[in-house]
């Protein structure tokens, strides 16, 4: 499942743009690979993130995955619900499982991310 309207990174985050703000989460493919998510560690609000910088980790029972920011900007909000219900990352990766909201510093970065079609092709080719 790869929603058309979103943009994607090679480290399997999705990005949804809403004006100067973006919402970030991990893709259905990523949650599937990770297995049952049991804990998500998110950054403090107002932290400055660079593109490709790790903003937290998602843990399953037997794996840990770093989360990388696809964009540069300032963290404006985090999904507090995940502290109680990390399983939302599995159940609703593109909705209730969102992770952070970031105020974009550089609008151009979005253009360099993959489209849905490109991301589908990327995961079919079996990236590591």
């Amino acid at each position: 499942m790869v929603p058309r309207e979103l943009k994607y990174s090679e480290s399997h985050e999705w990005v949804k743009q809403e004006g100067a703000m973006v919402i970030i989460g991990i893709t259905d493919y990523a949650q599937e690979e990770l297995g049952d998510v049991v804990f998500v560690e998110l950054p403090k609000v107002s932290r400055q993130l660079k593109q490709q910088e790790s903003f937290g980790v998602a843990e399953s029972v037997k794996a840990v995955s770093d989360l990388f920011s696809p964009v540069t900007g300032k963290v404006m909000a985090i999904n507090e619900t995940l502290a109680q219900q990390p399983e939302l990352v599995n159940k609703e990766p593109y909705a209730g499982g969102w992770m952070i909201k970031v105020e974009l510093s550089d609008n151009g970065e979005i253009a360099n991310l993959m489209s849905a079609e490109e991301y589908e092709k990327f995961i079919q080719e079996g990236p590591k």
Binding site: E59, V61, K62, A63, V64
Partner: peptide, 12 residues
């Protein structure tokens, strides 16, 4: 909480 452990985190 096995994800803290060396067999998963290795050098981290």
């Amino acid at each position: 909480l096995q994800t803290r452990e060396q067999h998963i985190r290795r050098e981290k």
